[in-house]
């Protein structure tokens, strides 16, 4: 069976959900092998095996994490050459897409990013993407021997499928070029305790209508265990960090439930949330275009509607 490489996304050995999703998808195409870069591989190995990794390739030189994108590209390129995999699956986040891009050029392989589905096709790996602000669904085939696919989080339900997870050390000498770009300072963001935006099952976002007060949005989000997002207008006004922006120039999310509070629904915003399963909006303006998308909408002031909803949710949850 053809090998399928999965680049592991982790924080100090703790596997992110997106990686388990990639392993689940990889099993449809062939035999998954995880590629783990960083220390604490032992902790990670257990989880990776649980989700179906037959092999776990480990590169544990801490140097690799000090530099950006290029080391991962070189390690993956060496593995592609060695194993001739059917596909390389990478999380479709900012760094993942760049690794995919560089790897594609280096190995002369076709690349697809932001895939929401991946299947084994007759003429090569087939992918599905949502394009033009989610208004079209596009199916593509990768025609090269190896397909490089960056897959969006929340594209598949995770299924465990225990496998051996046999560890194999990777020996690659990083080039000087790979060390040209260095992270010289990293200021960690204050932990909010909320789920990560692109991985969350529920997202509650605020926009211009908050007037800068995200309190009701955050409290409603917390009652639902949701992540908090923001429209570009809110971010441009300096009310919420750019890393929480949902939209074309921010994150594209596709949760089970998306709640837009005080957001009009410009194309820029719709591009980031239109593929959500269920959409709810609260807006004072009944003409707001966001209401064209909703499953349920409340024409009203978010400062009265959200706190009331928060209380009702808390009561219902006991």
């Amino acid at each position: 069976m053809a090998e399928v490489l999965v680049l592991v996304d982790h924080a100090g050995g703790k596997i992110r959900k997106a990686t388990a999703e990639l392993l689940t998808i990889a099993r449809r195409l062939g035999e998954p092998s995880a590629v783990y870069i960083g220390p604490n591989a032992e902790t990670a190995q257990v989880t990776l095996a649980k989700y179906g990794a037959h092999k776990v390739y480990v590169y544990d030189d801490p140097d690799a994490l000090e530099y950006l994108v290029a080391p991962q590209t070189e390690i993956l390129a060496a593995l592609v050459e060695k194993t001739s995999p059917l596909a390389v699956l990478i999380p479709s986040n900012a760094a993942g897409k760049e690794i995919a891009a560089r790897l594609a050029i280096r190995t002369e392989s076709g690349v697809i990013t932001d895939a929401v589905d991946v299947t084994a096709g007759g003429e090569g790996v087939e992918t599905t993407q949502s394009v033009f602000a989610g208004s079209y669904t596009v199916k593509s085939t990768v025609t090269t021997a190896t397909a490089i696919v960056a897959v969006k989080p929340n594209s598949v339900a995770i299924e465990p499928a225990p496998a051996a997870g046999e560890v194999e050390k990777v020996d690659v000498t990083l080039s000087d070029a790979a060390k040209a770009v260095r992270i010289v300072e990293s200021k960690p963001k204050e932990a909010t305790g909320r789920p990560e935006l692109t991985e969350a099952a529920i997202v509650v976002s605020g926009g211009r209508g908050t007037g800068g007060d995200f309190g009701p949005v955050e409290q409603f989000a917390d009652s639902l265990g949701a992540a908090v997002g923001a429209s570009r207008a809110a971010v441009d006004a300096g009310w919420y960090p750019h890393s929480n922006q949902v939209g074309q120039t921010g994150k594209q999310v596709s949760p089970q439930l998306y709640v837009a509070a005080g957001i009009s629904g410009a194309i820029q915003h719709r591009a980031g949330m239109q593929t959500s399963k269920t959409i709810i909006a609260v807006n004072k303006d009944e003409e707001a275009p966001i209401f064209e998308l909703v499953d349920f909408g409340v024409v009203g002031d978010l400062f009265t509607v959200l706190p009331q909803a928060t209380e009702a949710v808390k009561k219902a949850k006991g």
Binding site: A104, E108, S109, G110, V111, I112, E126, S130, V131, G134, S135, Y136, T137, V138, K139, S140, T141, V142, T143, T144
Partner: peptide, 10 residues
């Protein structure tokens, strides 16, 4: 290296 095989308006 990749080709769009079909597109559909949602």
């Amino acid at each position: 290296w990749t080709k769009v095989t079909s597109f559909a308006k949602r």
